[in-house]
Simulated scan of single mutants.
Amino acid sequence: MKLLLMFSAVIAGTVLPIQAALNGKMGKAVGDPVYAAFISFVVGSVGLFAYIMFARTDLSGIAYARQVSWSVWVAGLLGAFYVASVIILAPKLGVALTFGLIVAGQLGISLAMDHFGLLGIPVHTINWQRIVGILLIVSGVVLIRNF
């Protein structure tokens, strides 16, 4: 089961550069990366709504969203920031460098979140192997940038 989940994560990662390229085209078409991000979120919301209706998902759990801290709602703003940033950066830096830097940033904050158990996640302490992994990613970003 874990192997299937890991494969799913890889597949999810493969769609991000495709999304970046397509959103970049939308940004050029509408003349503004924020408009392109907005369009992307509207289309995604319509897609999720269609899935909910098709799958006949039980919507009663949505009511619990009112009970969470306001800080949890910031996730939507972070998603908008991410998509708008990728739309701006990918055409200027290239998709490979943009996502190399994004992955480096993701892994850096992920190590800190794991180590300190931030936002209630289980603690996984930083060790030398994880640090080497980050250094290898950063080295890959340097190679992508220079060549």
Rank of each mutant, 00 (worst) to 15 (best):
V72I: 12
G100F: 12
T14F: 09
L107C: 07
A84R: 02
P91V: 02
V68A: 14
V138F: 10
A90G: 01
K25R: 13
L111N: 02
R130K: 15
A96P: 09
L111K: 06
S8L: 09
V34P: 09
V142T: 12
G79N: 13
V46H: 04
I144G: 07
A20T: 06
V42T: 00
S45K: 05
F99W: 03
Q67N: 14
S8N: 01
L5T: 05
V30M: 10
G133H: 12
K28Q: 12
V72A: 11
H115W: 05
S85G: 15
A112G: 08
I11P: 10
L107Y: 12
V123F: 13
I121N: 08
G44T: 00
V15P: 02
T125R: 15
I126C: 07
S40Y: 07
L3V: 09
L59T: 14
I109F: 15
L5I: 04
F147G: 03
L101R: 07
W128S: 09
V72W: 12
L59P: 11
S8R: 01
A84I: 00
T57H: 11
V142K: 07
A20Y: 00
M6A: 04
V68R: 11
K2E: 04
T14G: 07
L118D: 11
V86I: 15
W73E: 09
A112C: 14
L48T: 06
M26V: 15
A12P: 02
I134V: 14
G24N: 04
L59H: 08
V138N: 05
R66V: 11
V30Q: 01
G13M: 02
F7S: 08
A37D: 01
P91S: 03
F54N: 09
N23V: 11
A50C: 08
V30G: 07
A75Q: 04
I88W: 08
S71P: 01
K25V: 14
T98Y: 00
V68H: 12
G47S: 15
I137T: 12
V86H: 09
D58H: 07
N23R: 01
F147D: 06
P122I: 10
M53I: 11
R56M: 03
R145K: 15
Q67F: 10
H124T: 12
W73H: 14
L107A: 03
V142G: 01
L101W: 08
I11F: 13
K2H: 00
L3M: 00
V132L: 15
L78W: 01
G120N: 09
M113S: 14
K92F: 10
G133Y: 11
D32I: 07
L119G: 05
V123E: 08
G27N: 08
F116W: 14
L143D: 04
D114R: 13
I126S: 06
V138C: 14
G140S: 14
L78T: 04
N146H: 12
N23T: 11
F41S: 06
A55T: 11
L16F: 03
P122N: 08
